[in-house]
Design a protein around this nucleic acid. Sequence first.
DNA 1: ACCTGAACACCGTTCAAGT
DNA 2: ACCTGAACACCGTTCAAGT
Lengths: 181, 181
Amino acid sequence: MPANKPQQDRAEKRAELLSEARRLFIEDGYESTSMAALAKAAGVAGNTIYWYFTDKDDVLVAVLNAVVADALADYEQVSTAPIAEQLLWIVDTLQQMRTLVSTVHSRATRSPAVDAWHNGFHLMTETLFRTTLEQAGLSGTDIEAEIKIGVFTIEGLLAHGLDAASTRAICQRLAQLWTPT
Amino acid sequence: MPANKPQQDRAEKRAELLSEARRLFIEDGYESTSMAALAKAAGVAGNTIYWYFTDKDDVLVAVLNAVVADALADYEQVSTAPIAEQLLWIVDTLQQMRTLVSTVHSRATRSPAVDAWHNGFHLMTETLFRTTLEQAGLSGTDIEAEIKIGVFTIEGLLAHGLDAASTRAICQRLAQLWTPT
DNA sequence: ACCTGAACACCGTTCAAGT
DNA sequence: ACCTGAACACCGTTCAAGT
């Protein structure tokens, strides 16, 4: 009868490990968090993690998905706001994974799993931008170039952690670029 | 009498180690190149490197300086070309350190030496952009925002290695943004 | 001053053994 | 199915010993 009970427990334990990983990766960084430290924080032996995740990069991908899922869940709040406000919101929301941006780029060159996640994230972001730009009535052959400029700028803002004033100015300049005169 | 002869030899040997490091870091990546592999390629014992460099990050900084120095030496060729051509040249030239871009961002969070280099590089690039934009007759309060957008876009192009057509389109769109109508 | 072999502390991961 | 202690191969770095 209880055919899904153990699965329930398994999912819960995985979620616990994931929660600890998310906290440690964001607080201390991916490289600074050893599998031993993660296991200790979760109260299990070092190698137990490998029963729930294939390797350390798999933990990273799970953390990234969790952070992005939370962000998307809150997106509706601003989905109808002006473009500049949307951009600012995206940067602020994803700022929590500031330290993970460089990690993703670094690991993507070595881990196929992280590379796949990175490609998917860019695809999603560019689709989001394209929709927004088209709704704003933008047209022309340069729309693809503008999307890339937008994505790269967001990525740069995330990675470098500028002060609030600069961040705001850049988002507004970017939005202005996309507002037909 | 030969007070500078040993220094000469020392500089040569350091240059040899640096040359091997530059090749290996760019070909195989920073993380994939162990200090042991670097030493073997240079024909010395593993720990000999530490007499010429303080640590692995110090080798990285030396490699980065060498690559940028070579690039700047060639810059005069295009310093009077149109802005779009200048941007394209910068991306093409620095493309050789494509794999190192993510490494720099990743290591900057852990190594003060790499962080210092990274800050200096951004300062240099932004100064270069500012000069170019002012010469182009651009003014306004948004000039700082535009510089950042430019730098982040270049960085994104370097890190992601887009195809030639996309790269060209983005550089032209960026240059167009900076050309007063 | 320069170079080395050997050791150190750490890392992600694997494996045989338990329940 | 799930968890563990112990081991493995590797890493950057240090140190005592040589010349």
